[in-house]
Amino acid sequence: MTDKTFEKYKAVIDEWFVNGFNGVKAYQKIYPKSKDKSAEANFRKILAIARIEEFVKEKREAIAEANKITIDECVSLLTSMARFDIADCYDEDGVLKPIHEIPKETRLAIEALDSDEIFIDSMVVGRTKKLKTSNRRSNVVELLKVLGGYEKDNNQKKQDNIVVFRIPDNGRG
């Protein structure tokens, strides 16, 4: 492999890291004329190259070091977000608890908290609070990816299901 090709493949991997690990889109960003099927096959070939495997490993290590986080911590965070109970956000009367009264594991699943006050003559007459939580399904899907839950499906996609039959010609030519 030439240095120029290696640099292009590194660009594909860089894009892969940026786009949420979509190999087809990463490949097509660098090779825009590529069709989905060939982009998928070529991306898999790139990932299998020893120099690229080492580049990916170094890139992951650099990201982990820069962010001081481990895979175990990420899996733990995803697990907390997948298991959170929305009831932990509310008191017995169904009123949203103050943020510091919500357990930390549940707060990890909160993506946004909007609070508005309604005034009449400079007096607060009401409050509206909106709570947006992370998508539980997405968290479970990410956990399944990390834990190999799709490995069987992934391996099935890698195989070329081609069967070759040899038919003897019995000298008839």
Results as ranks from 00 to 15, higher is better:
Tyr27Ile: 06
Lys157Thr: 08
Ser76Cys: 09
Ser38His: 05
Gly20His: 10
Glu40Gly: 06
Asp88Asn: 08
Asp93His: 10
Ser122Val: 02
Tyr9Val: 01
Val141His: 01
Gln28Val: 04
Met123Ser: 07
Asn67Glu: 13
Glu101Arg: 12
Glu73His: 11
Lys132Phe: 10
Lys68Cys: 03
Ala48Asn: 12
Val141Arg: 09
Ser80Phe: 09
Asn170Val: 02
Val95Asn: 07
Ser34Thr: 12
Ala41Phe: 11
Leu96Ile: 10
Tyr150His: 04
Thr128Met: 03
Pro98Trp: 04
Glu65Lys: 15
Lys35Ala: 15
Asp114Ser: 03
Lys35Val: 15
Pro168Gln: 12
Arg51Thr: 14
Leu96Val: 04
Gly171Thr: 08
Asn155Trp: 05
Asn139Cys: 11
Val140Gln: 15
Ser38Ala: 07
Lys145Ile: 11
Ala109Glu: 01
Asn155Cys: 09
Thr70Gln: 04
Ala26His: 11
Ile30Ala: 02
Lys129Pro: 03
Val12His: 10
Val163Gly: 02
Ser38Asp: 12
Ile120Trp: 09
Glu58Leu: 13
Asp114Gly: 07
Lys57Asp: 11
Gly149Asn: 03
Thr5Ala: 03
Gly148Asp: 04
Arg107Met: 04
Leu113Gln: 04
Ala109Tyr: 05
Ala112Asn: 14
Met81Asn: 11
Glu111Val: 14
Ala48Phe: 05
Ala39Val: 11
Gly23His: 04
Glu53Ala: 03
Val125Leu: 02
Ile110Cys: 02
Asn22Phe: 01
Gln28Glu: 02
Asn139Trp: 00
Arg137Leu: 14
Glu151His: 06
Lys152Cys: 00
Ser134Tyr: 13
Val75Arg: 13
Asn161Glu: 06
Glu142Asp: 02
Glu101Ser: 09
Ser115Thr: 08
Thr128Ala: 04
Ile86Ser: 07
Asp36Ser: 12
Asn139Gly: 06
Val12Glu: 02
Lys4Arg: 05
Ile120Gly: 03
Ser115Pro: 00
Leu147Arg: 09
Val12Leu: 11
Asp88Gly: 00
Asn155Phe: 07
Ala48Trp: 04
Glu92Asn: 06
Gln159Ser: 00
Gln28Lys: 15
Leu78Asp: 01
His100Glu: 14
Met1Thr: 05
Arg107Gln: 11
Val163Phe: 05
Lys104His: 07
Phe17Met: 02
Ala109Met: 06
Thr133Ile: 14
Ala26Tyr: 08
Ile63Gln: 02
Ile46Phe: 01
Ala64Val: 02
Glu101Asn: 12
Pro168Ser: 14
Ala109Gly: 08
Pro168Val: 04
Asn22Tyr: 06
Ser76Asp: 13
Ile86Gln: 10
Val56Ala: 07
Arg44Tyr: 10
Ser138Lys: 15
Met1Ala: 02
Tyr90Gln: 10
Ser38Phe: 09
